[in-house]
Amino acid sequence: MQGAIDETVAERLWDGQVPLRISVHPADAAALGVHSKSLSLYLSVHRFSYLTLIATDVRRFFADADGGNARLGEVDDADIWFECKGEPLKWHYPVGLLADMTTAANAAIPIAPLPWHVTVRFLNFPADKLLRGHSESMLSMTSDAFMSMIKEADFMRNGNIKKVMGLSKQDQTQLWESFAAHRFRDFWNVNAQLVAGGSEGVNGGGSYPRFVPMRVYVAGCAVVQEPVSPVDGESDHEYTLGEILSNILPRYYSSIPGGQVSRRSPNGTGEVTTFPAAVPILHGIEVPPDTPLVWLSRNCSYPDNFLHVVLRF
């Protein structure tokens, strides 16, 4: 197994962006006295970024564009949220994951029309659906959420959090700061210490992680996070993404090309029906199912060290 990072792949993914068209929700525009209702902000956002990192700029843009709308200028950053087609967007998910989930939810259109149209909201924060920040803390909450994922990934790979905790204080800080400032080299100088190689102490520094940090998103279902081993301990066979998905989600995924899966139909009749197998999407791309999971994890994980795979039907 090659332990090195494929920098070309990592850097291409790092620079990936989603073009966004952002407009103010009509109800909020009316309530806040925003005159330029038809105005949209066009913004190219890194797929790895978070909505909280653009929220302040978005609010300022609309406040300024509206002739210095004072009420908009006073909105607390913790009250800003985004939605798409009436669904609140989770700020602690990377933008690329949100875009993939939105695309996957529109079965009729395999590739969603770009720019991706998102509505910004300044009122009525849906505290029953989105994690609530408090004033002045959205950035630190985002960095906490990001670092929590990195530590959880470390735990999944190694069975402990020693690699992250073994980083110098400066390196730990640099992980988030270089990420937020989009500095590829600085980020990977630290991140490579976490993702390269395998778990320490197992087989004298074995080269495979214990489990692969991966979450799978299926519309209408709870997020799937299974402890999956990337290699067959006996035959040394490296499991492919397709093999893993058909193992953990047999009702949605089949590794047979053009294969079908059976599950109860969602209309409540309890009738078992066959469906075409889902397609795994990562970073807006259909992932070839024969990609070894360990390679995918090392080179194509989000900066939070997780693979966030969306199933499209």
Binding site: L131, R132, D144, S148, K151, I161, A222, V223
Partner: peptide, 17 residues
């Protein structure tokens, strides 16, 4: 491990905070 002892998270089954 310097993680927030208590934090809001998405409920793993319900998906709500």
């Amino acid at each position: 491990y310097h993680m927030p002892f208590i934090a809001q998270q998405d409920h793993p089954v319900l998906g709500t905070p």
